[in-house]
Amino acid sequence: MVARGLLTFKTTPSIVATGVTAGPLEKKSQFVDKFDKIYEDERCEAKTNEHGHAKMMEDACMIALSKVDSVPSDADFMLIGDLINQMTPSNFAAATVGIPYIGLFSACATSVSSLLMAALLTETGMSKCAIAGASSQHNAVERQFRYPNEYGAQKPETAQWTVTAAGVAAVTPYKKGFPSIECGTIGCVIDLGMTDPLNMGAAMAPAAADTLTRHLTGHNKDVKDYDVIMTGDLGKTGFELYKKLAGNQGIDVTKNFRDAGKEFYGADPSFLSGASGAGCSAAIFLTEVIDKMRAGDYKRVLLIATGALLSPLSFQQGDTIPCIAHAIELTMK
């Protein structure tokens, strides 16, 4: 089989800094101490949820840059995305920050697709510093994809809670002492006919399992090579399905498997199946995982961000939910 969709970075670009901002409810996250900034207001003191969404992204960018003593004019590219129609929060954030910008959409998998694109630009030598990241804001996302927030619709156990958070990484050419991007796998869109937007985990699980299998065989790796294999936001329901699907492919899923969505809010049952949203994987990958790599706890990790590629219109017209998963492999040399 010809290996398709595989990326290998000879220059191993590094993630030299991260910026993670989150909303007030995210204080309930077990990773809250690792976030750079928590807002007391869901709208980040802005007039609308969407403006707050943009503000959160801007602040995350500025925090990431400030950690490496940089300002926006030092960055060559900004590759970010979110879940709102036409990605207006990212567009507005890019307008304020003023870095040359391409909006990326892979739904919640944007956290990884943006890192891969930043690594590619760095590998070509055209970028000395690229900003990559993703964000989501609960109220803005929920009312777009599900029900108006005022409606208070009852949710089933399989539903996930969209995280209010933004996670941004500054990617530069290889720098010693920082996690570096060694390779990655671009996902295929998988659609097994799921139609329930209140059970995204189950819809995304096959995409995650497919990308995992393709990454391992394509890059000739084994599960044992990694200290952790973390998925983005499958949640409790989706994570179990994903492990089952991967297990059926002969992959040992008993150790080192983690899911950011399942762990984000801990065991709190009020969050049902767990967390979701582009900000979920971005926030956890860029804090929990990067911190552990820098502390020496993790030497090699595989991050698989999953995204449900539905639109409010496609769902209303009864279409199925196509899903994608992108993988990135980080090492600490």
């Binding site: 869901e42 609960h138 109220n139 927030n149 208070g152 809670w161 969050f271």
Partner: peptide, 11 residues
């Protein structure tokens, strides 16, 4: 209600 309160998701 809409004049007094701002809507938000319920946990």
């Amino acid at each position: 209600a809409s004049v007094i309160f701002k809507s938000k998701g319920k946990v």
